[in-house]
């Protein structure tokens, strides 16, 4: 019996050590990935004329200016399209949805949409936006296709955030004679704003690096003018350029350019996640604690 007890204790210590190892390995892999990319890419990023310069097809020393612009332009447009729809659907699921067939279908659709592989969304965007609506490989085509990726994530974020708002807030507002919409607009949504903002920021970070959707909707070339706000201009983004230049490009410094873009993408997601996402989340926790 005593021996068994000792074995159990030893196993417990061993397992605890192993689980600690797993946790540390997971952190270590992340740090290695981020560190490697930054070390390789930061010198390129600081190269004069790289960040805002025009790309070159053949010679070394080209920049990524148009791609940088397109990345944020497409991201902005896609959020403009996806945020209102997603928040609307999220509000429906959290505030209105009854336990019926319609709700079930909407939920199943949202979950399915969230797991559609991005290359499939890309091909769909190619048939519908590029060919059928004749947008061509364009910024608007890319933004619309990218919205399909954002929407299900944002719906879930909105619904989950709204569900954390205490029931009593809604009841107090309704009891004062406010309508349901007034309650949602003046009581529930302001409370949920920090949570929804965090969700939008994290989604934006993810969408910024998306590639498979954009290759066949926004295309792999850029406009000759920079910055070009034309919605129908070719819209290659940073991530697509990384892939294209590294695989198919003919410039001699293609690895350098890829390194530079990699580091830039990492920097941007660090800003999105840590500099914007974390403070909002902190504020939100403080507010929720205050509410209790």
């Amino acid at each position: 019996m005593l021996d068994q007890g000792r074995i159990n204790k030893r196993n417990d210590v061993l397992a605890t050590a192993l689980l600690w190892c797993a946790g540390l390995v997971i952190l270590l892999i992340l740090v290695c990935f981020l560190g490697y990319m930054l070390v390789q890419g930061l010198p390129v990023l600081l190269r004069p004329g790289f960040l805002l310069g025009m790309p070159s097809d053949i010679r070394a020393g080209g920049g990524i200016g148009p791609q940088l612009f397109n990345s944020f332009y497409i991201l902005f447009l896609s959020l403009l399209i996806s945020v209102p729809i997603a928040i609307g659907a999220g509000i429906y699921l959290s505030e209105y949805a009854k336990n019926n067939r319609l709700t079930d279908i909407v939920r199943l659709s949202t979950e399915s949409l969230a797991t559609v592989p991005s290359i499939v969304l890309g091909l769909f965007g190619m048939i519908v936006f590029v060919s059928y609506f004749e947008f061509g490989f364009s910024i608007i085509g890319g933004a619309l296709a990218l919205s399909l990726l954002n929407i299900p994530v944002l719906v879930r974020v909105t619904e989950e955030t709204l569900r954390t708002i205490p029931r009593s807030y809604r009841e107090a507002s309704l009891a004062l004679g406010a309508t349901k919409w007034q309650t949602i607009w003046r009581v529930v949504l302001p409370q949920a704003l920090p949570g929804i903002s965090t969700g939008v920021t994290l989604t934006a970070g993810r969408a910024l690096g998306e590639t498979a959707i954009l290759i066949f909707t926004a295309g792999t070339s850029v406009s000759r003018t920079f910055p070009d706000f034309d919605l129908f201009a070719a819209g290659e983004t940073l991530a697509v350029h990384l892939w294209y230049v590294n695989g198919i490009g003919m410039v001699p410094d293609k690895t350098q350019i890829a390194n530079g873009i990699g580091a830039l993408l990492i920097l941007v997601i660090l800003v999105f996640n840590l500099a914007i996402g974390l403070p909002i989340r902190y504020y939100q926790q403080k507010m929720l604690k205050g509410a209790k």
Partner: peptide, 23 residues
Amino acid sequence: VMRPATDLYVAIPSVVYGFIGLT
């Protein structure tokens, strides 16, 4: 520390994963 770290894992673009794997 781990919670934002898992968020970062999601945020790293898949081309960057591929590129690091490649190099």
